[in-house]
Simulated scan of single mutants.
Amino acid sequence: MKNDVGSQLTMQLQQYFGRYGEITLKREKPWASITFSGTRHYFELITEPGVEEKTVNALLAPLVSHEFDISGHFVADILVHLRAPADARIAIDILTIVDPVGKPAD
C-alpha cells in the first residue's frame, strides 16, 4: 500500500463515500505560497447507479469540514465542483499543505 499523501487521501475519501461511489485521484499539482508548500489533488467521485442526488448532497455538504489524518500534512481547502443533476461524476479538489510543526511523513 502506498503511503504518499494522494494515496492516503484516496483511501480516506473512499472510506468516507463508502458504497455510494468510487473515488479516483485524477492528477496532482505542486502548490506554494510565500510561506507554505503543498499539493493540489484533483479527484473524481463517480456515484453508484441508483444513488439519489439528495444522498450525495448530504455526503458532500460536511466534506469541507471533514478531518483527514495525513502524516506530515493537513488539508487547507476542499472544493466540490457543481454538477448537473443527472451527472454521476463529481470533481473534488483538495489542497494539502506540508505541516510546518507536525511530525514528518515516514
Rank of each mutant, 00 (worst) to 15 (best):
D77T: 06
I97H: 00
R27M: 01
T47M: 04
K103D: 05
L82T: 10
T10M: 01
N3Q: 08
H73C: 12
E44K: 09
P100F: 10
F43G: 10
V51N: 07
E67H: 13
H66F: 13
V75G: 06
E53D: 08
E22L: 11
Q15A: 12
M11Y: 11
S33A: 05
L63S: 03
E53S: 09
D69E: 13
A84R: 14
R89N: 12
E44N: 10
I23R: 13
L60C: 12
D4C: 01
R19F: 11
H66W: 12
S71I: 08
D69W: 10
P30S: 06
P49T: 00
F17C: 09
D99M: 08
R40L: 15
I70Q: 07
K26H: 07
P100V: 08
V51L: 04
M1G: 13
F43W: 00
G6T: 05
L9H: 07
E67M: 06
Y20K: 15
L45M: 14
S37K: 11
L95D: 03
I78C: 04
L13N: 05
S7C: 02
D93V: 06
Q14V: 00
I97D: 04
Y20C: 15
F43H: 02
D77Y: 03
A61L: 04
G38L: 08
Q15P: 04
T10A: 14
A58V: 00
T96K: 02
T55H: 02
I94W: 08
S71F: 09
V75E: 02
E67N: 14
L82W: 05
A76V: 01
E67A: 15
I92V: 11
H41N: 15
A86C: 01
F17H: 11
S65M: 07
R27T: 02
T55D: 00
S7A: 13
P100C: 04
I94T: 09
T35F: 03
T10N: 14
P100W: 04
D77L: 09
T24Y: 01
V101G: 15
A105D: 03
F68L: 07
Y20H: 15
Q14A: 09
N3E: 08
V51P: 08
D87T: 03
R89A: 14
K103A: 09
L60V: 11
Q12N: 05
I78N: 03
E44V: 09
F68A: 13
A105Q: 14
F43Q: 07
I92H: 02
R40E: 14
E52M: 02
G18R: 13
L82D: 14
L45P: 04
D106V: 02
I90F: 03
T39Y: 05
R40H: 10
G72K: 12
M1Y: 10
L82G: 15
I97E: 03
A88G: 00
E44C: 02
I34Y: 05
G6H: 04
D99Q: 05
E48N: 12
A91T: 13
T47Q: 15
W31K: 03
K29L: 09
H81A: 06
T24D: 03
A58G: 12
E48M: 11
Y16D: 10
P100Q: 10
Q8K: 11
D93L: 08
F36Q: 12
T39M: 07
V51C: 10
G21S: 09
